[in-house]
């Protein structure tokens, strides 16, 4: 067992866990942040994508000992809250409007990969967007509307 300190969605957390416990399990089971999903457990599907210091990672492949002191962002941190409930960010809004989410199970990971792309200055170019989400499998959409939604969020034409 070890004690690990890091930040999740801007809040400092401290967890006691074996160092090799998967970040995915820390998030879902220890911190109750079930927005991050498990699809394969071996880094193929990207459903568990979170950002560690801004970079997208498969949280099923990251042991908690590797995130000591890191800033972690999950899907729960994208929307802001208001008195009338959550306020979606531009990316989430674009997914909602364009039809980028169907069954929704790949959506949290997809959003985080896209968030990272946008935060690193990515634009509405289709090829670049497809490259940015190539590690995130979606079985519902054919990716067309996901790519469109990210392009819209990047300032492209709706």
């Amino acid at each position: 067992m070890g004690e690990w300190r890091f930040a999740v969605n801007g809040e400092a957390v401290e967890v006691e866990a074996p160092g090799m416990r998967r970040l995915l399990d820390i998030l879902r089971e220890d911190l109750g942040l079930t927005g991050t999903k498990e699809g394969c457990g071996e880094g193929e599907c990207g459903a568990c994508t979170v950002l560690v210091d801004g970079a997208p990672v498969d949280s099923c492949l990251v042991p908690v000992c590797q995130v000591e002191g890191a800033r972690i962002a999950t899907v729960e941190g994208l929307a802001t809250t208001s008195s009338e409930g959550p306020v979606l960010d531009r990316l989430q809004e674009a997914f909602l409007e364009m039809g980028g989410a169907q069954c929704g199970i790949c959506t949290p990971g997809m959003l985080m990969a896209a968030r990272s792309y946008l935060d690193s200055g990515g634009g509405p170019d289709e090829v670049a967007i497809r490259e940015a989400i190539a590690g995130n499998l979606c079985r519902c959409t054919g990716y067309t509307k996901i790519v469109e939604a990210i392009a819209v969020a990047a300032g492209g034409p709706g």
Partner: peptide, 8 residues
Amino acid sequence: GPAKLTGE
């Protein structure tokens, strides 16, 4: 959609 997009 909103519930799926926020992880809720």
